[in-house]
Each structure stands twice: as C-alpha cells, then as structure tokens.
C-alpha cells in the first residue's frame, strides 16, 4: 500500500500524459498539470520555509556559532512575509498587485534584492577571468580545439578581431576573424549542439520510461 499506490500513480499519470499528446481532447492536460503543480508547490513551501525557520531558530536557541546571522535571516524572512502577505504600504490596498509601484514589497525588492542579486551575478566577470587564466590551457588536443574555438569567437566579438585580420584580402574574407567566428557559430558549433540535444531527447525518453515503469523508485522512500 505504501509503495504500490504511489508507483501506480506515477505509472498511470505518466502514461496518460504521454498518450495525451496524440489525443486532441486530452491535449490541455499538460497545462492542467502546471496548475496542479503550482498549487502543490505552495504547500510544499510550508515544509521548506518552515524548515528554514526551524533551522535558524534552533541555531539561535542553542547559541551555535554565528547565530547572530540566523537572527538576521529570521528577521528578514518575517518582515518580508508580514509586509507581503498584508500588502503593507500598497497604494492599491489589499486587492492591489503585489508588485505595485511604491508598495512595501516592491521597495524591498528594489532596494535589497536587486543590488544583491545583480552583484552576485556580476561576480561572474571575475570568475570568468580566473577560469580563463587557470583552466584554458592547450593541455591536449581536445583542450586545444576548445581554446582555439573560444579564442576565435572571443576576438570576433571585439574590435580586436577586425584590427588583427582586417588586412586579409576580400576573396579570402572568410579568414577574417569576425567572419570566421560567424562561420564557426553556424556550422561546427551547430553540429555539437545538435548531437547534445538529440542525445538529451533520447536520454529523457529512457529515463522517463524507467520512472514510469517503476524501475527507478528510490524517490519513493522505503516501506517502513
């Protein structure tokens, strides 16, 4: 009962959705599922958010290392929840859109979340440089190909590419770096992309079948 029912659910729901693609009256099932999923996700958040709350509360309670930061997290969480759920400061009142300009939640988003996330994203500029220095070396044939292709595209997208190879006469213009970059993007690059995509498509088919047939069932936990 504890494992058979879930296995049956996975199998039946999966099969129905596969076949539904071919049956016009059932075609809207996919959209219905995403609605279902959205609603289940809210309830799951009670578990996730609740767990977040519990972990940090526990840290504060037991005065674990760095518990001060847990207080910060808890305060941030609760304040945002209160402002958002009661729509505090929302010019359109409780029925207004949660992201209405000037609402408390929007202020939090703009003044706290935006600078934090855009800076976190921007750190990539530094990581790209350190990865370039350390990892992009022509260690073997494969790495050399990767490096050369990266370098051509990279130069092709900066004025440097034209500066370096602008002298190449018109009839050999394909060897000018910007043109070469376009050619790589549209041919060899495409081939690699396609083999990955086709492989992924087939991989998903096999994995889904394993799940639907109940061969891979660790996610269901144990009988006890």
């Amino acid at each position: 009962m504890k494992r058979t029912v879930p296995l049956l659910i996975t199998g039946i729901v999966g099969t129905v959705l596969i076949v539904s693609v071919l049956i016009p009256p059932a075609q809207s099932l996919g959209e219905d599922f995403s609605l279902f999923f959205d609603i289940i996700a809210v309830f799951a958040f009670f578990l996730g958010g609740g767990n977040l709350f519990r972990i940090h509360l526990k840290k504060v309670f037991h005065r674990k290392e760095d518990y001060g930061f847990s207080i910060v997290t808890l305060v941030g969480f609760l304040v945002t929840l209160t402002i958002g759920l009661f729509k505090i400061g929302n010019p359109e009142g409780i029925s207004g859109s949660i992201t209405a300009a000037g609402s408390g939640l929007q202020t939090i988003f703009v003044s706290i979340i935006t600078p934090l996330s855009s800076t976190m994203y921007a750190l990539l500029a530094f990581y790209v440089a350190s990865a370039s220095y350390r990892a992009f070396r022509a260690k073997n044939r494969e790495a050399t190909i990767l490096l050369v292709s990266a370098f051509v595209i990279l130069l092709g997208r900066t004025p440097l590419g034209m500066m370096l190879t602008g002298w190449i006469p018109e009839q050999f213009s394909i060897f000018q770096i910007p043109n070469l970059a376009v050619w790589i993007m549209n041919s060899a690059n495409l081939a690699g992309q396609r083999s990955i995509l086709i492989g992924v498509g087939l991989g998903v088919v096999a994995m889904s079948l394993r799940l639907i047939l109940g061969m891979d069932r660790t996610y269901l936990g144990s009988d006890k």
């Binding site: 879930p6 999966g14 596969i18 599922f33 999923f37 498509g201 998903v204 088919v205 269901l220």
Partner: peptide, 28 residues
C-alpha cells in the same frame, strides 16, 4: 508520497514527449 509520485509521473510523461519532439525529432 502520493503527490510526489503524481508530480514525478506527470513530469516524466509530459517532458518525455516534449523533449522527444523538440530535441530529438526537430533537430534530426
């Protein structure tokens, strides 16, 4: 586990076809 099984079954079924068509099929 029931809702979990539901979600996993639905994701597997739904995306099996989507991936099969838009990845494998269309790319070939």
């Amino acid at each position: 586990r029931w809702p979990l099984a539901f979600i996993i079954g639905a994701t597997a079924g739904l995306y099996m076809m989507t991936y099969f068509v838009s990845n494998a099929f269309v790319q070939i």
